[in-house]
Amino acid sequence: MTLIIGCGNSDRGDDGAGVLVARRLRQLGLDALEHSGDGLALMELWNIDDEVILVDAMQSGANRGTVLTWDPIAHPLCAESYRCSTHAFGPREAIELARALDRLPARIQIYGIEAASFEPGEAPCREVLEAVERVAGEIALTLSSSQELDIHPLG
């Protein structure tokens, strides 16, 4: 099965990017989970035959709202560019621990949305909100073509 996971904290500015993508996808009729990004719990969500789409905020030094996508099974994650989730043991560590324990899912596609502000109580910036629409739209379109869903994404 395909598992869509949006990580982050919607009450901490741009950190909510992944969670907002999950919410947008549910509005579009797709199942998507919201998750804090805690690595140990994250690893428990998937089975080894699942296909996982994981969306999270990232800090790579790119412009705010920039979207990067990559396959962490073929290309292990760079610790320095992907560490802005809630705690030090986040999605990167979950994927690398799963790799060490031979518990990786069949496929993982990561969408990283460049974030800048993580202030408690702040809303995400305009660039991140626009990126949320783009990412939700792309995921919905990809899945709709494979699952024949009637999806009309925005953005």
């Binding site: 560590e93 060490a100 324990l101």
Partner: peptide
């Protein structure tokens, strides 16, 4: 870290 440990002590 724990990830490195896990590779040798699964």
């Amino acid at each position: 870290d724990f990830v490195e440990l896990a590779k040798d002590y699964p």
